[in-house]
Nucleic acid binder design. Sequence first.
DNA 1: CGTTTCTTTGAGGATATTCAATTTATGTGG
DNA 2: CCACATAAATTGAATATCCTCAAAGAAACG
Lengths: 232, 232
Amino acid sequence: MDVAARVAIFERVPLFAGLTPQDLEVVAREAHEYRLKKDQQPFQQGEPATHHYVIGWGRVRLDQTTPEGQNVILRFMGPGDLLGSVAVLREVPYPATPIAIEDSMLLRWSAGRFAELMQRFPPISLNAIRIVGGRLQDLQDRLRELATQRVERRIASALLRMVRQSGRRVERGVEIPFVISRNELAELTGTTLHTVSRTLSAWEQEGILSGKRSSHLIIAKPHRLVEIAEQA
Amino acid sequence: MDVAARVAIFERVPLFAGLTPQDLEVVAREAHEYRLKKDQQPFQQGEPATHHYVIGWGRVRLDQTTPEGQNVILRFMGPGDLLGSVAVLREVPYPATPIAIEDSMLLRWSAGRFAELMQRFPPISLNAIRIVGGRLQDLQDRLRELATQRVERRIASALLRMVRQSGRRVERGVEIPFVISRNELAELTGTTLHTVSRTLSAWEQEGILSGKRSSHLIIAKPHRLVEIAEQA
DNA sequence: CGTTTCTTTGAGGATATTCAATTTATGTGG
DNA sequence: CCACATAAATTGAATATCCTCAAAGAAACG
Protein backbone atom coordinates (compact mmCIF):
# COMPACT_ATOMS: atom_id res chain seq x y z
CA MET A 1 0.00 0.00 0.00
CA ASP A 2 1.56 3.29 -1.08
CA VAL A 3 1.71 6.58 0.74
CA ALA A 4 -1.19 8.08 -1.20
CA ALA A 5 -3.44 5.21 -0.21
CA ARG A 6 -2.46 5.65 3.40
CA VAL A 7 -3.17 9.34 3.23
CA ALA A 8 -6.61 8.49 1.89
CA ILE A 9 -7.21 6.35 4.97
CA PHE A 10 -5.82 8.92 7.38
CA GLU A 11 -8.12 11.59 6.04
CA ARG A 12 -10.93 9.85 7.88
CA VAL A 13 -9.01 9.03 11.04
CA PRO A 14 -10.12 11.24 13.94
CA LEU A 15 -6.63 11.16 15.45
CA PHE A 16 -5.35 13.09 12.45
CA ALA A 17 -8.23 15.54 12.10
CA GLY A 18 -6.98 19.04 11.35
CA LEU A 19 -3.82 17.91 9.58
CA THR A 20 -3.18 19.05 6.03
CA PRO A 21 -2.65 16.53 3.23
CA GLN A 22 1.03 17.43 3.39
CA ASP A 23 1.11 16.65 7.11
CA LEU A 24 -0.67 13.38 6.49
CA GLU A 25 1.94 12.44 3.96
CA VAL A 26 4.66 12.83 6.54
CA VAL A 27 2.65 10.77 9.00
CA ALA A 28 1.98 8.14 6.37
CA ARG A 29 5.60 7.83 5.39
CA GLU A 30 6.60 7.07 8.95
CA ALA A 31 3.97 4.35 9.31
CA HIS A 32 4.63 0.66 8.98
CA GLU A 33 2.04 -1.76 7.77
CA TYR A 34 1.09 -4.62 9.94
CA ARG A 35 -1.18 -7.33 8.58
CA LEU A 36 -3.18 -9.67 10.72
CA LYS A 37 -5.10 -12.78 9.80
CA LYS A 38 -8.26 -13.61 11.66
CA ASP A 39 -7.51 -14.55 15.31
CA GLN A 40 -4.02 -13.07 15.30
CA GLN A 41 -2.90 -10.44 17.82
CA PRO A 42 -0.54 -7.51 17.30
CA PHE A 43 0.42 -7.58 20.98
CA GLN A 44 -0.65 -9.07 24.27
CA GLN A 45 -1.92 -7.79 27.56
CA GLY A 46 1.03 -7.38 29.92
CA GLU A 47 3.71 -6.76 27.29
CA PRO A 48 5.67 -3.50 27.38
CA ALA A 49 3.95 -0.92 25.20
CA THR A 50 6.15 -0.04 22.24
CA HIS A 51 3.88 1.02 19.36
CA HIS A 52 0.90 3.15 18.46
CA TYR A 53 -1.55 1.50 16.06
CA VAL A 54 -4.35 2.73 13.83
CA ILE A 55 -6.70 0.27 12.18
CA GLY A 56 -6.50 0.66 8.41
CA TRP A 57 -9.12 -1.91 7.59
CA GLY A 58 -10.60 -4.96 9.28
CA ARG A 59 -11.99 -5.47 12.77
CA VAL A 60 -10.49 -6.08 16.14
CA ARG A 61 -11.91 -7.17 19.45
CA LEU A 62 -10.24 -5.80 22.58
CA ASP A 63 -10.06 -8.38 25.37
CA GLN A 64 -9.09 -8.10 28.98
CA THR A 65 -8.35 -11.29 30.84
CA THR A 66 -8.48 -11.75 34.60
CA PRO A 67 -5.70 -13.47 36.52
CA GLU A 68 -8.08 -16.45 36.80
CA GLY A 69 -8.55 -16.62 33.06
CA GLN A 70 -12.00 -15.14 32.73
CA ASN A 71 -12.37 -12.88 29.77
CA VAL A 72 -14.11 -9.57 29.20
CA ILE A 73 -14.54 -7.79 25.90
CA LEU A 74 -13.79 -4.10 26.33
CA ARG A 75 -14.87 -3.11 22.84
CA PHE A 76 -14.99 -3.89 19.17
CA MET A 77 -12.90 -1.64 16.98
CA GLY A 78 -12.88 -0.87 13.29
CA PRO A 79 -11.19 1.26 10.64
CA GLY A 80 -9.76 4.50 11.97
CA ASP A 81 -9.68 3.34 15.58
CA LEU A 82 -6.68 3.90 17.79
CA LEU A 83 -4.90 1.09 19.57
CA GLY A 84 -2.17 0.97 22.19
CA SER A 85 -1.53 4.69 22.46
CA VAL A 86 -2.68 5.14 26.02
CA ALA A 87 -0.32 2.46 27.26
CA VAL A 88 2.59 3.87 25.25
CA LEU A 89 2.05 7.39 26.53
CA ARG A 90 1.55 6.27 30.11
CA GLU A 91 4.59 4.04 29.82
CA VAL A 92 2.78 1.05 31.24
CA PRO A 93 2.26 -2.44 29.84
CA TYR A 94 -0.59 -2.93 27.41
CA PRO A 95 -3.65 -3.49 29.60
CA ALA A 96 -5.55 -5.57 27.07
CA THR A 97 -5.12 -7.87 24.08
CA PRO A 98 -6.50 -6.96 20.65
CA ILE A 99 -7.56 -9.88 18.50
CA ALA A 100 -8.42 -9.64 14.82
CA ILE A 101 -11.90 -10.97 14.18
CA GLU A 102 -11.33 -10.57 10.45
CA ASP A 103 -8.22 -10.27 8.34
CA SER A 104 -7.05 -6.76 9.09
CA MET A 105 -4.41 -4.19 8.34
CA LEU A 106 -2.99 -1.95 11.00
CA LEU A 107 -0.60 0.95 10.59
CA ARG A 108 1.87 1.47 13.35
CA TRP A 109 4.58 3.78 14.62
CA SER A 110 7.19 3.25 17.30
CA ALA A 111 6.80 5.24 20.49
CA GLY A 112 9.73 7.50 19.65
CA ARG A 113 8.69 8.28 16.08
CA PHE A 114 5.17 8.97 17.14
CA ALA A 115 6.34 11.31 19.88
CA GLU A 116 8.11 13.34 17.22
CA LEU A 117 4.96 13.44 15.12
CA MET A 118 2.95 14.63 18.11
CA GLN A 119 5.46 17.41 18.67
CA ARG A 120 5.48 18.41 15.07
CA PHE A 121 1.70 18.31 14.61
CA PRO A 122 0.02 19.72 17.71
CA PRO A 123 -3.56 18.83 16.70
CA ILE A 124 -2.72 15.18 17.28
CA SER A 125 -2.44 15.64 21.04
CA LEU A 126 -5.77 17.34 21.32
CA ASN A 127 -7.40 14.75 19.09
CA ALA A 128 -5.95 12.05 21.27
CA ILE A 129 -7.43 13.57 24.40
CA ARG A 130 -10.81 13.79 22.72
CA ILE A 131 -10.65 10.20 21.57
CA VAL A 132 -9.52 8.81 24.89
CA GLY A 133 -12.07 11.02 26.63
CA GLY A 134 -14.77 9.61 24.41
CA ARG A 135 -13.80 6.09 25.33
CA LEU A 136 -13.80 7.05 28.98
CA GLN A 137 -17.36 8.25 28.67
CA ASP A 138 -18.40 5.11 26.80
CA LEU A 139 -16.97 3.04 29.58
CA GLN A 140 -18.67 5.13 32.23
CA ASP A 141 -21.96 4.45 30.53
CA ARG A 142 -21.30 0.74 30.34
CA LEU A 143 -20.25 0.66 33.96
CA ARG A 144 -23.49 2.32 34.96
CA GLU A 145 -25.39 -0.14 32.83
CA LEU A 146 -23.65 -3.12 34.32
CA ALA A 147 -24.19 -1.80 37.82
CA THR A 148 -27.85 -0.97 37.48
CA GLN A 149 -29.49 -2.96 34.73
CA ARG A 150 -30.55 -6.53 34.25
CA VAL A 151 -29.09 -8.83 31.66
CA GLU A 152 -31.80 -8.50 29.04
CA ARG A 153 -31.48 -4.73 28.96
CA ARG A 154 -27.72 -4.91 28.78
CA ILE A 155 -27.79 -7.25 25.81
CA ALA A 156 -30.26 -5.00 24.05
CA SER A 157 -28.07 -1.97 24.74
CA ALA A 158 -24.95 -3.72 23.51
CA LEU A 159 -26.62 -4.67 20.25
CA LEU A 160 -27.92 -1.15 19.79
CA ARG A 161 -24.48 0.27 20.43
CA MET A 162 -23.05 -1.92 17.70
CA VAL A 163 -25.86 -0.97 15.37
CA ARG A 164 -25.19 2.70 15.97
CA GLN A 165 -21.45 2.33 15.59
CA SER A 166 -21.31 0.08 12.57
CA GLY A 167 -24.83 -0.91 11.55
CA ARG A 168 -25.75 -1.15 7.87
CA ARG A 169 -29.20 -0.92 6.35
CA VAL A 170 -30.29 -4.07 4.55
CA GLU A 171 -33.63 -5.25 3.22
CA ARG A 172 -34.81 -6.92 6.37
CA GLY A 173 -33.55 -4.33 8.83
CA VAL A 174 -30.16 -3.29 10.13
CA GLU A 175 -27.17 -5.55 9.95
CA ILE A 176 -24.20 -5.81 12.27
CA PRO A 177 -21.47 -6.19 9.67
CA PHE A 178 -19.31 -8.71 11.45
CA VAL A 179 -19.78 -12.13 12.98
CA ILE A 180 -20.34 -12.12 16.69
CA SER A 181 -20.83 -15.28 18.72
CA ARG A 182 -23.13 -15.79 21.67
CA ASN A 183 -20.06 -16.13 23.81
CA GLU A 184 -18.65 -12.83 22.63
CA LEU A 185 -21.94 -11.15 23.34
CA ALA A 186 -21.82 -12.64 26.82
CA GLU A 187 -18.30 -11.40 27.47
CA LEU A 188 -19.36 -8.00 26.25
CA THR A 189 -22.35 -7.73 28.57
CA GLY A 190 -21.11 -9.50 31.66
CA THR A 191 -23.25 -12.60 31.53
CA THR A 192 -23.03 -16.20 30.32
CA LEU A 193 -23.43 -17.54 26.82
CA HIS A 194 -26.41 -19.53 28.05
CA THR A 195 -28.32 -16.48 29.11
CA VAL A 196 -27.45 -14.74 25.84
CA SER A 197 -28.63 -17.74 23.89
CA ARG A 198 -31.95 -17.90 25.72
CA THR A 199 -32.47 -14.18 25.29
CA LEU A 200 -31.70 -14.14 21.59
CA SER A 201 -33.87 -17.21 21.05
CA ALA A 202 -36.78 -15.40 22.63
CA TRP A 203 -36.12 -12.35 20.46
CA GLU A 204 -35.97 -14.50 17.36
CA GLN A 205 -39.36 -15.95 18.33
CA GLU A 206 -40.67 -12.42 18.51
CA GLY A 207 -39.17 -11.60 15.13
CA ILE A 208 -37.00 -8.88 16.59
CA LEU A 209 -33.85 -10.25 15.02
CA SER A 210 -32.38 -13.11 13.06
CA GLY A 211 -29.00 -14.54 12.20
CA LYS A 212 -27.54 -17.94 12.91
CA ARG A 213 -24.03 -18.95 13.66
CA SER A 214 -21.31 -17.34 11.52
CA SER A 215 -23.81 -15.15 9.71
CA HIS A 216 -24.31 -11.51 10.49
CA LEU A 217 -27.00 -10.54 12.96
CA ILE A 218 -29.88 -8.65 11.41
CA ILE A 219 -32.08 -6.54 13.62
CA ALA A 220 -35.53 -6.46 12.07
CA LYS A 221 -37.15 -4.36 14.78
CA PRO A 222 -34.63 -1.96 16.26
CA HIS A 223 -37.43 0.00 17.93
CA ARG A 224 -38.36 -3.07 19.97
CA LEU A 225 -34.77 -3.36 21.14
CA VAL A 226 -34.85 0.29 22.11
CA GLU A 227 -37.99 -0.37 24.13
CA ILE A 228 -36.33 -3.26 25.90
CA ALA A 229 -33.17 -1.25 26.53
CA GLU A 230 -35.14 1.63 28.00
CA GLN A 231 -37.88 -0.12 29.89
CA ALA A 232 -37.90 0.53 33.62
CA MET B 1 -5.32 32.40 48.73
CA ASP B 2 -2.45 34.13 46.95
CA VAL B 3 -0.62 33.09 43.84
CA ALA B 4 2.32 31.65 45.77
CA ALA B 5 0.01 29.37 47.70
CA ARG B 6 -1.60 28.21 44.50
CA VAL B 7 1.78 27.52 42.95
CA ALA B 8 2.59 25.40 45.99
CA ILE B 9 -0.52 23.35 45.28
CA PHE B 10 0.14 23.06 41.58
CA GLU B 11 3.62 21.74 42.16
CA ARG B 12 1.99 18.47 43.16
CA VAL B 13 -0.70 18.41 40.50
CA PRO B 14 0.06 15.80 37.82
CA LEU B 15 -1.61 17.92 35.15
CA PHE B 16 1.10 20.51 35.58
CA ALA B 17 4.08 18.19 35.86
CA GLY B 18 7.03 19.46 33.89
CA LEU B 19 6.13 23.13 34.23
CA THR B 20 8.62 25.53 35.78
CA PRO B 21 7.70 27.60 38.83
CA GLN B 22 7.42 30.57 36.49
CA ASP B 23 4.99 28.66 34.28
CA LEU B 24 2.98 27.67 37.32
CA GLU B 25 2.72 31.26 38.35
CA VAL B 26 1.13 32.14 35.04
CA VAL B 27 -1.25 29.24 35.39
CA ALA B 28 -2.04 30.21 38.97
CA ARG B 29 -2.78 33.80 38.09
CA GLU B 30 -5.36 32.74 35.55
CA ALA B 31 -7.16 30.46 38.00
CA HIS B 32 -10.27 31.36 39.91
CA GLU B 33 -11.05 29.95 43.29
CA TYR B 34 -14.25 28.10 43.79
CA ARG B 35 -15.28 27.07 47.27
CA LEU B 36 -17.76 24.33 48.01
CA LYS B 37 -19.42 23.36 51.25
CA LYS B 38 -20.20 19.74 51.90
CA ASP B 39 -22.91 18.46 49.52
CA GLN B 40 -22.58 21.33 47.06
CA GLN B 41 -21.86 20.80 43.38
CA PRO B 42 -19.76 22.91 41.04
CA PHE B 43 -21.82 21.74 38.06
CA GLN B 44 -24.36 19.14 37.09
CA GLN B 45 -24.53 16.23 34.71
CA GLY B 46 -26.08 17.43 31.46
CA GLU B 47 -25.00 21.07 31.68
CA PRO B 48 -22.80 22.52 28.92
CA ALA B 49 -19.14 22.13 29.86
CA THR B 50 -17.56 25.52 30.38
CA HIS B 51 -14.71 25.12 32.89
CA HIS B 52 -11.72 23.01 33.78
CA TYR B 53 -11.34 22.32 37.51
CA VAL B 54 -8.53 21.11 39.72
CA ILE B 55 -9.19 20.15 43.31
CA GLY B 56 -7.10 22.32 45.63
CA TRP B 57 -8.21 20.70 48.82
CA GLY B 58 -11.18 18.68 50.01
CA ARG B 59 -12.90 15.66 48.51
CA VAL B 60 -15.42 15.12 45.79
CA ARG B 61 -17.55 12.19 44.75
CA LEU B 62 -18.32 11.83 41.06
CA ASP B 63 -21.88 10.62 40.43
CA GLN B 64 -23.62 9.46 37.33
CA THR B 65 -27.39 9.22 37.39
CA THR B 66 -29.52 7.09 35.11
CA PRO B 67 -32.60 8.47 33.38
CA GLU B 68 -34.62 6.48 35.91
CA GLY B 69 -32.85 8.10 38.84
CA GLN B 70 -30.57 5.31 39.91
CA ASN B 71 -27.15 6.50 40.93
CA VAL B 72 -23.66 5.18 40.35
CA ILE B 73 -20.47 6.53 41.86
CA LEU B 74 -17.77 6.75 39.22
CA ARG B 75 -15.00 7.68 41.62
CA PHE B 76 -13.86 9.59 44.66
CA MET B 77 -11.48 12.42 43.97
CA GLY B 78 -9.07 14.40 46.12
CA PRO B 79 -6.46 17.16 45.99
CA GLY B 80 -4.75 17.48 42.62
CA ASP B 81 -7.46 15.66 40.72
CA LEU B 82 -8.81 16.96 37.46
CA LEU B 83 -12.49 17.63 36.88
CA GLY B 84 -14.54 18.51 33.82
CA SER B 85 -11.71 18.74 31.32
CA VAL B 86 -12.73 15.83 29.16
CA ALA B 87 -16.19 17.27 28.61
CA VAL B 88 -14.79 20.72 27.87
CA LEU B 89 -12.30 19.42 25.34
CA ARG B 90 -14.82 17.12 23.69
CA GLU B 91 -17.34 19.93 23.66
CA VAL B 92 -20.07 17.79 25.13
CA PRO B 93 -22.20 18.28 28.25
CA TYR B 94 -20.72 17.21 31.56
CA PRO B 95 -21.44 13.48 31.80
CA ALA B 96 -21.49 13.34 35.59
CA THR B 97 -22.11 15.42 38.69
CA PRO B 98 -19.35 16.08 41.23
CA ILE B 99 -20.50 16.48 44.81
CA ALA B 100 -18.32 17.74 47.64
CA ILE B 101 -18.24 15.21 50.47
CA GLU B 102 -16.26 17.67 52.58
CA ASP B 103 -15.81 21.43 52.40
CA SER B 104 -13.53 21.83 49.42
CA MET B 105 -11.69 24.34 47.29
CA LEU B 106 -11.44 24.00 43.57
CA LEU B 107 -9.43 26.09 41.15
CA ARG B 108 -10.95 26.64 37.76
CA TRP B 109 -10.32 28.13 34.34
CA SER B 110 -12.71 28.92 31.54
CA ALA B 111 -12.46 26.77 28.43
CA GLY B 112 -10.91 29.59 26.41
CA ARG B 113 -8.29 30.59 28.95
CA PHE B 114 -7.31 27.03 29.51
CA ALA B 115 -6.95 26.41 25.79
CA GLU B 116 -4.43 29.24 25.71
CA LEU B 117 -2.53 27.72 28.61
CA MET B 118 -2.43 24.36 26.85
CA GLN B 119 -1.02 26.03 23.77
CA ARG B 120 1.55 27.95 25.71
CA PHE B 121 2.66 25.04 27.88
CA PRO B 122 2.79 21.87 25.79
CA PRO B 123 3.44 19.45 28.67
CA ILE B 124 -0.12 20.03 29.85
CA SER B 125 -1.60 18.20 26.86
CA LEU B 126 0.55 15.17 27.32
CA ASN B 127 -0.12 15.13 31.04
CA ALA B 128 -3.83 15.30 30.31
CA ILE B 129 -3.65 12.29 28.02
CA ARG B 130 -1.80 10.34 30.68
CA ILE B 131 -4.32 11.28 33.34
CA VAL B 132 -7.35 10.49 31.24
CA GLY B 133 -5.68 7.31 30.06
CA GLY B 134 -5.10 6.32 33.65
CA ARG B 135 -8.75 6.79 34.43
CA LEU B 136 -9.68 4.78 31.39
CA GLN B 137 -7.61 1.90 32.63
CA ASP B 138 -9.08 2.19 36.13
CA LEU B 139 -12.53 1.98 34.65
CA GLN B 140 -11.59 -0.98 32.48
CA ASP B 141 -10.50 -2.79 35.60
CA ARG B 142 -13.69 -1.95 37.40
CA LEU B 143 -15.75 -3.04 34.45
CA ARG B 144 -13.99 -6.36 34.40
CA GLU B 145 -14.56 -6.70 38.10
CA LEU B 146 -18.22 -5.90 37.85
CA ALA B 147 -18.64 -8.32 34.97
CA THR B 148 -16.82 -11.25 36.49
CA GLN B 149 -16.75 -11.04 40.27
CA ARG B 150 -19.22 -11.50 43.03
CA VAL B 151 -20.31 -8.79 45.37
CA GLU B 152 -18.07 -9.65 48.31
CA ARG B 153 -14.95 -9.52 46.16
CA ARG B 154 -16.01 -6.25 44.59
CA ILE B 155 -16.52 -4.60 47.95
CA ALA B 156 -13.14 -5.82 49.12
CA SER B 157 -11.51 -4.51 45.95
CA ALA B 158 -13.21 -1.14 46.27
CA LEU B 159 -12.00 -0.74 49.85
CA LEU B 160 -8.49 -1.76 48.87
CA ARG B 161 -8.48 0.71 46.02
CA MET B 162 -9.39 3.50 48.39
CA VAL B 163 -6.76 2.36 50.83
CA ARG B 164 -4.13 2.41 48.12
CA GLN B 165 -5.24 5.77 46.80
CA SER B 166 -5.71 7.64 50.04
CA GLY B 167 -5.12 5.28 52.96
CA ARG B 168 -3.29 6.51 56.07
CA ARG B 169 -1.47 4.40 58.62
CA VAL B 170 -2.97 4.59 62.09
CA GLU B 171 -2.45 2.56 65.24
CA ARG B 172 -5.05 -0.05 64.54
CA GLY B 173 -4.40 -0.44 60.83
CA VAL B 174 -5.03 1.67 57.76
CA GLU B 175 -7.62 4.40 57.70
CA ILE B 176 -9.73 5.66 54.82
CA PRO B 177 -9.51 9.38 55.54
CA PHE B 178 -13.04 10.35 54.64
CA VAL B 179 -16.51 9.29 55.66
CA ILE B 180 -18.16 6.81 53.36
CA SER B 181 -21.64 5.47 53.91
CA ARG B 182 -22.91 1.97 53.24
CA ASN B 183 -25.01 3.40 50.49
CA GLU B 184 -22.05 5.06 48.82
CA LEU B 185 -20.11 1.81 48.94
CA ALA B 186 -23.07 0.12 47.33
CA GLU B 187 -23.27 2.68 44.54
CA LEU B 188 -19.55 2.29 44.03
CA THR B 189 -19.67 -1.50 43.70
CA GLY B 190 -22.96 -2.04 41.94
CA THR B 191 -24.92 -3.61 44.75
CA THR B 192 -27.42 -2.58 47.45
CA LEU B 193 -26.74 -0.97 50.77
CA HIS B 194 -28.25 -4.04 52.41
CA THR B 195 -25.69 -6.35 50.94
CA VAL B 196 -22.89 -3.96 51.84
CA SER B 197 -24.18 -3.74 55.38
CA ARG B 198 -24.32 -7.50 55.78
CA THR B 199 -20.86 -7.91 54.31
CA LEU B 200 -19.23 -5.27 56.48
CA SER B 201 -20.98 -6.65 59.54
CA ALA B 202 -19.47 -10.03 58.83
CA TRP B 203 -16.04 -8.47 58.37
CA GLU B 204 -16.38 -6.57 61.61
CA GLN B 205 -17.19 -9.87 63.35
CA GLU B 206 -13.98 -11.25 61.93
CA GLY B 207 -12.05 -8.21 63.10
CA ILE B 208 -11.04 -7.29 59.59
CA LEU B 209 -12.24 -3.73 59.93
CA SER B 210 -14.10 -1.30 62.15
CA GLY B 211 -15.77 2.07 61.93
CA LYS B 212 -19.33 3.08 62.61
CA ARG B 213 -21.45 5.67 60.96
CA SER B 214 -19.77 9.01 60.24
CA SER B 215 -16.43 7.81 61.48
CA HIS B 216 -13.61 6.79 59.20
CA LEU B 217 -13.29 3.15 58.26
CA ILE B 218 -10.20 1.48 59.66
CA ILE B 219 -8.93 -1.67 58.04
CA ALA B 220 -7.23 -3.74 60.70
CA LYS B 221 -6.34 -6.66 58.46
CA PRO B 222 -5.70 -5.46 54.93
CA HIS B 223 -4.15 -8.81 54.06
CA ARG B 224 -7.44 -10.54 54.75
CA LEU B 225 -9.19 -8.14 52.40
CA VAL B 226 -6.58 -8.90 49.77
CA GLU B 227 -7.29 -12.60 50.23
CA ILE B 228 -10.99 -12.01 49.77
CA ALA B 229 -10.41 -9.80 46.74
CA GLU B 230 -8.21 -12.41 45.11
CA GLN B 231 -9.86 -15.65 46.08
CA ALA B 232 -11.09 -17.74 43.20
C1' DC C 1 -35.61 15.16 73.23
C1' DG C 2 -37.85 14.36 69.28
C1' DT C 3 -36.94 13.86 64.39
C1' DT C 4 -34.42 12.44 60.70
C1' DT C 5 -31.09 9.69 58.63
C1' DC C 6 -28.40 5.71 58.39
C1' DT C 7 -27.71 0.97 59.52
C1' DT C 8 -28.81 -3.65 60.70
C1' DT C 9 -31.11 -7.94 60.18
C1' DG C 10 -34.65 -11.31 58.71
C1' DA C 11 -37.58 -13.69 55.41
C1' DG C 12 -38.98 -14.62 50.87
C1' DG C 13 -38.34 -14.54 46.14
C1' DA C 14 -36.39 -13.48 41.42
C1' DT C 15 -32.84 -13.41 38.27
C1' DA C 16 -29.28 -15.50 36.37
C1' DT C 17 -25.71 -19.08 36.92
C1' DT C 18 -24.16 -23.72 36.92
C1' DC C 19 -24.46 -28.32 35.47
C1' DA C 20 -25.85 -31.47 32.03
C1' DA C 21 -27.38 -33.21 27.76
C1' DT C 22 -28.64 -32.59 22.96
C1' DT C 23 -28.87 -30.41 18.61
C1' DT C 24 -27.00 -27.92 14.93
C1' DA C 25 -23.49 -25.95 12.22
C1' DT C 26 -18.88 -25.78 10.44
C1' DG C 27 -14.60 -27.59 8.94
C1' DT C 28 -11.48 -31.38 7.48
C1' DG C 29 -9.51 -35.34 5.54
C1' DG C 30 -10.28 -39.21 2.94
C1' DC D 1 -18.63 -34.93 -1.67
C1' DC D 2 -19.50 -37.42 2.20
C1' DA D 3 -18.41 -38.91 6.99
C1' DC D 4 -16.56 -37.70 10.82
C1' DA D 5 -14.73 -34.58 14.21
C1' DT D 6 -14.99 -30.28 16.35
C1' DA D 7 -16.99 -26.18 17.80
C1' DA D 8 -21.06 -23.44 18.77
C1' DA D 9 -25.67 -23.02 20.17
C1' DT D 10 -29.84 -24.54 22.43
C1' DT D 11 -32.59 -25.99 26.13
C1' DG D 12 -33.95 -28.01 30.69
C1' DA D 13 -33.47 -28.57 35.60
C1' DA D 14 -31.48 -27.45 39.92
C1' DT D 15 -29.19 -24.14 42.62
C1' DA D 16 -27.00 -19.90 44.35
C1' DT D 17 -26.47 -15.31 44.85
C1' DC D 18 -28.30 -11.30 45.64
C1' DC D 19 -32.29 -8.27 45.69
C1' DT D 20 -36.62 -6.71 47.46
C1' DC D 21 -39.66 -5.94 51.04
C1' DA D 22 -40.25 -5.13 55.80
C1' DA D 23 -39.31 -3.73 60.35
C1' DA D 24 -36.66 -2.31 64.04
C1' DG D 25 -32.50 -0.40 66.11
C1' DA D 26 -28.77 3.11 66.51
C1' DA D 27 -26.59 7.30 65.68
C1' DA D 28 -26.62 12.19 64.42
C1' DC D 29 -28.89 16.68 64.27
C1' DG D 30 -31.31 20.71 65.63
